[in-house]
């Protein structure tokens, strides 16, 4: 990135803060409606220093990652078999459509009832939300394999496993990584919603708790922290992507099916 761009980015940040301050100045908002930016940053600093924020962050991080991994595995495996078998697909297709249209997040209260106030219920919610886009994109990815490549593998007398390793998996990876990126964003949302409904720790819990006390600066801090968490997780997947599929870079994004 060149200097000019960085300079402009900093400029946008300063403008944003100024706009924030002038809104407060013009409308005379009290602290509990819209706190001053510096109040938020000071609150952020103290919450970090006390270790409280870190604890809540780790809880949400744990729920997000655990749920994400489970959701990914649950999506990948049936996705592969659905992609490979017309019969399996036809059998499952009405249920897949139902799953796609169902607002999965609406199940969250039920899941909290079933799995309790601890991290487990959030992991289940996250896994449930992540599952579907991974499933659909696994199907798309595996299907995107060129028929001629499969013929080539057949001529070379490749085994099922070799076909998967040499052709199907690498061909599907670009689509899968795009789905992982969608999935990790959804995962954070899932964890937070779960914590809203019923929890005793986590950044979602912190948000709700602070809001209940009208501690608006703390609400802002929780949201900022969630944003940072989301960005970091996204970047990790981005780095993994460029490590695992270096041949793919600069080739333009593949279409992702979102749910």
């Amino acid at each position: 990135m060149n200097r000019k761009i960085i300079f402009q980015q900093i400029l946008v940040f300063i403008l944003f803060v100024l706009l924030w301050k002038s809104v407060i100045f013009i409308f005379k908002f009290p602290e509990f409606i819209l706190p001053q930016p510096e109040t938020v940053f000071i609150e952020w600093y103290f919450l970090l220093k006390s270790g409280l924020l870190l604890n809540h962050t780790l809880v949400t991080l744990y729920e997000t990652i655990a749920g994400f991994i489970i959701g990914v595995l649950l999506g990948l495996i049936p996705g592969y078999f659905i992609a490979k078998s017309k019969q399996v697909e036809q059998t499952l297709s009405p249920y897949l459509v139902a799953l796609q249209t169902a607002p999965k997040i609406a199940l969250a209260p039920l899941i909290v009832i079933w799995f309790g106030f601890g991290p487990l219920s959030k992991i289940v919610i996250v896994a449930l939300i992540v599952f579907f886009p991974i499933l659909v994109n696994t199907i798309v990815g595996i299907r995107s394999v060129d028929k001629n490549l499969l013929d080539l593998m057949k001529i070379c007398k490749a085994t099922r496993l070799q076909i998967f390793r040499f052709v199907e998996l690498p061909a599907a990876l670009p689509v899968l990584f795009a789905a992982f990126k969608t999935g990790i964003t959804l995962a954070v949302i899932g964890a937070v919603v779960g914590e809203f409904i019923g929890a005793n720790s986590g950044l979602g819990y912190l948000t709700i708790y602070a809001a209940g006390l009208m501690n608006t600066p703390q609400v802002f801090v929780a949201i900022l922290q969630l944003t940072v968490l989301g960005i970091v997780l996204y970047l990790i997947i981005d780095v993994l992507e460029s490590l695992m599929i270096p041949w793919y870079k600069n080739k333009g994004e593949k279409d992702v099916v979102r749910s």
């Binding site: 001629n148 080539l152 001529i155 070379c156 007398k157 040499f166 990876l173 599929i245 041949w247």
Partner: peptide, 28 residues
């Protein structure tokens, strides 16, 4: 045993040239 050159080149885009060439041997 046959070697087959397809109507489209049909290379694995995730492998460089030499790894594409050795693919049939790798399978064996």
């Amino acid at each position: 045993e046959v070697g087959y050159v397809f109507q489209e080149h049909n290379l694995l885009e995730w492998r460089n040239v030499i790894d594409n060439v050795i693919l049939p041997l790798e399978i064996k």
